[in-house]
Design a protein around this nucleic acid. Structure first.
Lengths: 368, 368
DNA sequence: TTGTAGGCGTTATCAG
DNA sequence: CTGATAACGCCTACAA
């Protein structure tokens, strides 16, 4: 069965050879696997094997097929492949998060990780308070036959979704601030974990090192695991130096600008005003700025403010905000990559460090 | 051929009837068009007709088929449909825009417009300066066989892309600040147009009404059509009252925070300081805030600042920024809807008004 | 108005 | 290592 594959003159109904290839290119039609097979004088199954990197293809054959593929610019149709594979080449990015900057970073990172894989990213915002929350997502995943899913906080910690993923038996990865082993019952899934807690502890120690002793605190939305982690981190950092947050300076918040503004107003009107305020995210820190300015206070001369996220606003407000940065884009890229590699198991847990960004909003505690 | 479709006992190889339906549901298998056909005792073609709203189906038949579809929860597979239709059920959102808030708004709006259509949104950021810019997008569209494309500014005005769309003969819609009829040569495509110009004129008149006569200007990135539109608008508004921008207060910028900061520093250190600064977007306005604060100036007591976009930062910086709002989300929703309706032609041009948001950063011009 | 045969572009099965 | 044949789930063309 020796053949001279790129020679002319085909006896079989198949065409092939250089002439045929050139002729095909001239036609400028979208190539299919059949075209490749005919031109390379092999069966479509062999071409398929080459596409899918099947080991059982003779190197020679593989090279010849690849040559034709490159020459005529063949790209397999994801829809047809998907139909045969019973799954699409789409990854779903599912989130219920109002932070635009965060979402775009995550998207960009995920796309970084998907580049070159032939898999596309489908965005899917949702509403965890909706009655149809779980059903909507189920339909999305089932109908689209997603290849995988990335779950962002806070819904990445939603039991209902985790159960759904299990039921649907779909590859997925969670992005969360809560280490799985702290859960009750423990959640065991592939996850991208950020060390919010350690970052916050560092920020707290930064304040202490500046001489702050009386510190106000604005809590995040307690429905987000991150809010608990961050609080724990701040408290740990302070506790190392024997400092605790006075109850009258400990305010609830929900991660929104407004809640930060209201909380800071309260804090700043306390009988003994603190020299610093910790906000559990940058939005609330921005709200605290407004409250401070309205009260005629200077930042950081009169009051130091720190936030968390290193969101866009952190460097837009004046003075630039001291905050804690999470490598969101890297986290998302890693999430997408591990999803693609299929190298994640139930206890794959990749951890990312947070980083303290010291800027103009934090200064020495005023005397007195 | 009269049948009692929901009765028991099928003579043909086909099964059907209530029992069969219940039996099927019990199996909890993903339904296909074949299942529906068997259960409804019609051919798959008839089911297909029902799915695609073909008029040539007897109402009775349609109802019966729909009943089965609802009962067993059949949802057609987009991949199979796509393969047969030779196009996917995906819309591409293509952009090269660093403004996270803007992108998320557009996405959300587009998804609003896509809801219920069975079409998903695939995000596709790109780099218009890359060598492979056009080819990348071509491949994206061709390989995915997109059902349509939404082009955001500034690439919505890129000739190369418009030519590509024409070549690929794909439904698309542009979002732009530049009315098509102002182009040279005129671009004739379906488009969503925002009236940046009128909004800016209104903002300019607002400044004049506050008594400002000496006004600094920070220009946007001239590669964006919007930068030209906005400048023209501001100038028009001022010109109506005989005011022009002094050349020494007319600064270049590129829509970035830093460029706004630099420009404002220059403007504020001019021999005769202006009483107001117009920035072509909010990012640059935020930069101007920093410059003003560093110079020890108060906003708006010493200097009034206005921006454009009503971005997130506008209400985060202190004091809240007077700016011009574009209904981005609505624009995107409309874009997606018209793409779906197929009701857009080369001269469909839907126009959205901008709206002046007066906030704390603009006040009366100081005396003297 | 409805059904039959065949195809969309790819992979699975199983034989060689 | 390779190939013929039959899926995958839906739609088009044509026929009835």
């Amino acid at each position: 069965m020796a053949r001279t594959p790129l020679a002319t003159a085909a006896t079989a109904p198949r065409e092939g050879g250089i002439d045929a290839v050139e002729e095909f290119i001239r036609r400028r039609k979208k190539a299919t696997i059949n075209d490749v097979a005919n031109l390379a004088r092999v069966s479509k199954k062999t071409v398929s094997r080459v596409i899918n990197n099947s080991p059982s293809v003779k190197p020679d054959t593989r090279d010849q097929v690849n040559a034709i593929i490159a020459r005529i610019g063949f790209r397999p149709d994801p829809q047809a492949r998907g139909l045969a594979f019973r799954r699409s080449f789409l990854i779903g990015l599912i989130y219920d998060n109002p932070n635009a900057q965060y979402i775009v970073n995550m998207q960009t990172g995920a796309l970084d990780g998907l580049r070159g894989t032939g898999t596309e990213l489908v965005v899917h915002p949702c509403d965890r308070l909706s009655e149809t929350f779980v059903d909507d997502i189920r339909e999305f995943i089932e109908v689209q036959r997603l290849a995988g899913v990335i779950l962002l906080p806070p819904i990445a910690d939603d039991r209902r979704l985790l159960d759904l993923m299990e039921e649907l038996d779909i590859p997925f990865i969670r992005v969360t601030a809560r280490p799985g082993d702290l859960n009750d019952p423990p959640i065991r899934t592939a996850q991208i974990v950020s060390r919010d807690r350690e970052g916050c502890a560092e920020a707290a120690e930064h304040l202490v090192s500046l001489g702050h002793k009386r510190i106000g605190f604005i809590q995040g939305n307690l429905q987000y695991p991150s809010a608990h982690e961050r609080r724990a981190g701040f408290e740990e950092g302070l506790a190392r130096h024997g400092i605790t947050i006075p109850p009258e300076l400990d305010m609830p918040g929900d991660y929104s600008f407004d809640s930060g503004y209201r909380a800071a107003r309260q804090i700043l009107s306390a009988p003994r005003r603190p020299t610093a305020i910790i906000a559990s995210n940058d939005q609330m820190a921005a709200g605290a700025y407004h409250a401070a300015y309205e009260a005629g206070l200077k930042i950081p001369a009169d009051v130091t403010i720190v936030g968390f996220d290193d969101a866009d606003v952190a460097t837009r407000i004046y003075p630039p905000l001291t905050t804690v940065r999470l490598p969101t884009r890297d986290m998302a890229r890693t999430a997408a990559e591990s999803l693609m590699n299929g190298e994640m198991t139930d206890d794959t847990s990749i951890v990312f460090q947070a980083k303290l960004m010291i800027r103009g909003s934090s200064g020495p505690a005023p005397k007195g």
